[in-house]
Design a protein around this nucleic acid. Sequence first.
DNA 1: CCCTTTATCCATCCAACGGTTGATTGACGA
DNA 2: TCGTCAATCAACCGTTGGATGGATAAAGGG
Lengths: 220, 220
Amino acid sequence: MVKPNSSTVRSKTSQAASPDDLETRERILDAAHAVFTRKGTAASRTQEIAAEAGVNKALVHYYFGTKAALADAIFARALGNIMPRIFGILADPERTIAEKVPAIAREQIEFHSARPYLAGYLISELHAQPERIARLMSRQGGRVPLDVIRRQLREGARAGKIRPISAEQFVANLMGLLIFPFAIKPALRELLSLDDSRWRAFIEERRRLVPDFFMAGLRP
Amino acid sequence: MVKPNSSTVRSKTSQAASPDDLETRERILDAAHAVFTRKGTAASRTQEIAAEAGVNKALVHYYFGTKAALADAIFARALGNIMPRIFGILADPERTIAEKVPAIAREQIEFHSARPYLAGYLISELHAQPERIARLMSRQGGRVPLDVIRRQLREGARAGKIRPISAEQFVANLMGLLIFPFAIKPALRELLSLDDSRWRAFIEERRRLVPDFFMAGLRP
DNA sequence: CCCTTTATCCATCCAACGGTTGATTGACGA
DNA sequence: TCGTCAATCAACCGTTGGATGGATAAAGGG
């Protein structure tokens, strides 16, 4: 690694000085993440990414070849960040369903509150390139482990404690309740006339409400 | 209106012949809808829209000025198509909540099954230009009529028939359950290993499941 | 000390894209 | 029958943006 701007050369106008100890490659990745998630891949400019990374546009190509490859990397990274948070908990055989649901809800609401662009970004990318996810998931192996919840749901149903529901529908319902509001945030805010503080209250309320609502929906 | 290709001039290579009685302006709108919803606004090319409309690129500008204006028109049109379907039913004072929920579910699942791109498109646009929806909604007036459900929810809660829930959360939950799976269709199909026919079965099942699940979630 | 490798920038290229212009054509009212 | 106007097209223009080639500098091995 080279790490420029020691003292010698570097006229470099540039901002971006602060978190400069990061490896350049990482800085570019972070910048790309910021720009891509904010404006969407198609509307993002490599120039802007380079600037945000405090680096020359050519260097972006040096590290990642093409814009599309960089976009793939960011998408895969975001996916690899969010998916284990959901499926890691779901696949845990130690916890009951009644424990998992609030845990996931807490986790996801926390997560998306801190990353308001992410849900919208992921859906946009999914929509723009529906085939990519198959490519990425096959490459890094790993279909999703539904067997644990599937078993728990079956046992709960047999014991008459919950109504019969497939693991697929279970997951779809849970994700819809948790993620969707973040994905359409601008529309919801307008539709429901929620200013900043009411939006926060709205989301805060869902932390309680969603687990209750969801578990109630499962009762037979 | 002029209506070309009568018989005289028109060398015109072009396909697009079939539904040609539509006014040109409408043909362009339809083409723009198809292209924009399929690839997203930023990745769409006016040239492609023109081609799909069987028309010259200059004509697109002749009718709509700029790509952005055309994009606005398509977005507003899509919004004006989907929103009344939900809020029209919700605002009906004649139907009870227990009647509205299955009605909306039927309607929405039908709607999105026939328009697989629409949910993803709307969320992408929302994400790419969060301020636009405020602009459009203020222009054509019309905040959403939540008072009817709000009253019904309050009365249901007072009578002890449903648990207390705000109209806002009610709407968010319902939309999340109904729309989200369509919005992330490519991911769900991959995650849950649903091929074409299993996807259809999955959606078909939700027609029953969502109203049941949702109404159960409302029980006190 | 050279020579190779890695990292970085500058300048430039080229395709593509959004938008414009000017000409043509047909319909129609005066 | 002529002039006007809306509709339409082919060709063009200016800019942007992704990509590349070459120069340069530091690092490090031999």
